Amino acid sequence: MSTPRFLTLPPGVRTRQIETSVGAFAVLEALPVSGVPERWPALLVPGLTGSKEDFIAVLQTLAQSGRQVIAVDMRGQFETAGPEDPQAYTFAALGNDIDVLAHTIGGGEPLHLVGHSFGGLVTREAVIDGRTKFASYTLMSSGPAAIVGVREHAGRTMISELPEAGLEHMWHTRMEPEALSAGVPDDIIAFLRKRLFANSLTGMATMTEQILSAPDRCDELAQVEVPTLVLYGEHDDGWPPPMQSEMAARLNAECVVVPGAAHSPAVEAPETTAAALTRFWNAAETRSLG
């Protein structure tokens, strides 16, 4: 669970809806203070129990490098509506959404793509299918295949409890106690509760099944010619850091370890994370245009 540090939108960041051929998506959009983006845009995709708000702390900084930066709620997440059809929440279906969003945002021009945790498994679908030309691709605290360790255990518990106990049980037995023990402020706890109960129950159950059974697609991803970055916290409790480092080597990708961060570098170390992304994006554009 990612816990935003704050919910007040910084200057230059606004909420909006993006209309596409596959539906409307709730997003946070950041623009340079000048209002004129001079670089290619970026699309940020959150994790399973997250939302666009997980990127609030980095949006303004990322936009100041001269680009439009958009963080999205995926289908069935928080403020983006989703159907009760489980097939709408498979990797293939969600990856298709990313393709459509990228075309809508970029108008056919290259776009930087970032996927956090489960969002990394979704976004790689769009990268592998080759329908969209991405300027760069970043896997943030994501892995080569199904989630492991303590988060795998939490996911299996969720799958066993959701059908009968629902989101209320999940909130009271796991998410609220975790937030309270971490000293999360009351207003953020209220937001986390609101966000959880806004999610599609069908979507959450299906996406959890997906993250627990994800195949290893690194060999396919490595065949795609796109600058790739693997970025994760040194204390990540999702996919172990050595596993992510090995994935970076398999992908011939750059690898950045964020000191002091765990599974949500954009929340836990926003300055370091934003600096790493900006450097990587700028370098990718320089190579592409050079």
Rank of each mutant, 00 (worst) to 15 (best):
G115A: 08
E109Y: 01
E125R: 09
H112S: 06
G106Y: 11
V127A: 15
A102I: 08
P83A: 08
I128C: 05
H112V: 12
A88I: 09
F91L: 14
V114F: 12
A135M: 13
Y89I: 10
A135S: 12
G120A: 10
Y89E: 05
G108T: 13
L94W: 11
G130F: 03
F91D: 01
L94P: 00
S117Y: 12
E79C: 10
N96H: 04
Q87M: 11
L94Q: 15
H103N: 14
Y89T: 03
A88W: 02
H112R: 05
D129W: 00
D97E: 07
E79S: 11
K133H: 11
A126E: 12
P83Y: 13
P86D: 12
A135T: 02
H103K: 13
A88K: 00
L121Q: 15
V127R: 01
S117G: 13
T104P: 00
Q87W: 00
E84H: 06
Y137W: 13
G130R: 10
R131V: 08
Y89H: 03
I105V: 08
Y89R: 06
A93N: 01
Y89K: 03
T90K: 04
F118G: 06
N96L: 12
D97I: 14
G106T: 09
Q87I: 00
H112E: 09
Q87S: 14
D85V: 03
H103A: 13
V114D: 14
V114E: 06
G95Y: 05
T80R: 06
T123F: 10
A102S: 15
G107L: 07
H112M: 10
G108P: 02
Q87D: 13
K133S: 14
G120Q: 05
D99L: 06
G82E: 12
A92R: 15
V122P: 01
L113N: 04
P83F: 06
S117T: 05
V100G: 01
S117K: 02
Q87H: 14
E79M: 11
I105R: 08
P86R: 14
A135I: 02
G106R: 12
E125T: 15
L111E: 02
G120I: 11
V100E: 03
F134S: 07
E125K: 04
V122R: 03
D129I: 04
Q87K: 09
G106M: 10
L94V: 06
A102M: 02
F134V: 06
A88T: 02
S117Q: 05
